[in-house]
Amino acid sequence: MNNIKEVDVLIIGAGPAGSIAAREASKNGVKTLIIDKKSEIGTPKRCGEGIMDGVLEKVGIEPDERWIARHIDGARLVAPDNTSAWFTSENLETPSTGIILERKVFDKHVTMDAIRNGAEVMLKTEATSITRKDNYLLVDIISFNQKYNQIKAKIVIGADGPEGRVGSWMGLNTKVPLSEMESGAQYEMTNLKMEKNDTIEFYFGSVAPGGYAWIFPKGYDTANVGIDVSGVKGEKTALEYLDDFIANNEETKDGQIVEVNVGGNPLCGVFDKIIADNFMLVGDAAGCVSPITGGGIDTGLESGMIAGQIAAKAIKEDNLSEENLQEYADYVDENIGKKFKKLITVRDFIYNLEDEDMNEYIGAIANANITKLSTKALLKAMIKVSPRKLLKLRKLL
């Protein structure tokens, strides 16, 4: 005999996107459940943990020093020949500041906020399949306490990350081409000798074929040190490239590893279809990942917030059709998808540059009088080096 739990909204995945969707659905008066196959929310982090200032306020999260590892003052772009372009409060009229999160604490905070607004959470609970029944979805689960083996939901929100399966169960094409899937590896390290331990650093060129390496400070001598490499351009594994980077970088070569994280990172942009009857995808599962940086906390939170609101609205209207959920897909396309399509053009240009060209372009950026850090400002500096070569990118200005 099946033990079935009935809810209005079921969210599969307790990351930031899923949890904020639960917060919004619950506070709008619908019965909401989050399930997650892990035993601890926030682990493994698989993330550089950085976000720009203003992101949290936009989605109604008040910053809390308990989960802020480091306040960041700008960025450093590093060429293969070690030429550096610095963008900090020392040379920017408009500061480009942000924070490095402690995701193990932050993710729990967002989930707890959902709980305080009425959501329920079940950990060590894995969804194994979805079946459509009349006007609802029936989700088979395996749960450690074995109290339920199925969940009946009016709407299911897939928030199961970049390698999620839920979307494909619902007939959506969420397969990422190998050419647009990055292999990622990251260490949290200590005993580093960072030139500025409040500035995030990006390293480009053959050090990370088809991607980049990074150092995101979390303390005076501690940082997330990671790398993303193309699934088709790299000749070694991401871990091998990362180890080589660390061994040859003055800031990291004497450091020690205290945590290891690996995984895939889709850079394809938002998927063509992220909704179906009774169903929505959010965050990384929807492709809400920057095609240039691979970052997705900000767009994950934004997509999750809107999905939770629209799910609650659809349930109150008793209209769970794809047509009625189109409002969510339209929002994501207008506010996230269109921007990402432009960034794909930039990505394809930058990540195909030879080291010599990369040296020239970052050198131009370093010598340009950039007072506000933005993709447009960087492109303008690069175009001055080679207007003809960058003709395609001029359209993005």
Results as ranks from 00 to 15, higher is better:
165 R>L: 12
149 N>R: 00
147 K>M: 08
83 T>L: 10
68 I>N: 05
326 Q>S: 14
136 Y>A: 13
13 G>K: 05
102 E>C: 10
79 A>L: 10
34 I>D: 12
351 Y>G: 03
371 T>D: 14
77 L>D: 04
205 G>H: 01
357 D>R: 09
61 I>C: 08
39 S>D: 14
232 V>C: 04
394 R>N: 14
131 T>H: 09
119 A>F: 03
146 Q>P: 02
141 I>H: 04
19 S>A: 15
96 S>L: 14
80 P>R: 06
45 K>L: 13
132 R>T: 14
127 A>H: 04
301 L>D: 03
182 E>A: 15
295 G>H: 06
19 S>P: 05
299 T>A: 03
142 I>M: 10
135 N>P: 04
35 I>N: 06
285 A>N: 03
388 R>Y: 13
379 L>G: 06
353 L>T: 07
152 K>C: 11
209 P>Q: 07
252 T>V: 08
100 I>Y: 00
198 D>V: 02
350 I>T: 06
213 A>Q: 04
52 M>R: 13
156 V>F: 06
304 G>L: 11
379 L>M: 09
307 A>T: 02
90 E>R: 11
351 Y>N: 05
112 M>S: 10
338 K>H: 07
4 I>N: 06
107 D>Y: 00
329 A>L: 07
281 L>W: 01
307 A>S: 08
311 A>T: 04
110 V>N: 11
215 I>V: 13
62 E>V: 12
309 Q>I: 12
99 I>E: 10
69 A>V: 02
209 P>G: 07
90 E>L: 08
93 E>D: 15
391 L>E: 15
46 R>D: 03
60 G>Y: 08
95 P>E: 09
314 A>Q: 04
198 D>K: 10
272 D>K: 12
380 K>D: 13
287 G>W: 00
11 I>R: 01
389 K>D: 15
112 M>Y: 05
15 G>L: 04
72 I>D: 07
260 V>K: 14
326 Q>K: 14
179 S>L: 12
244 D>L: 04
27 K>C: 12
46 R>M: 13
60 G>E: 12
203 Y>F: 14
280 M>F: 08
98 G>W: 03
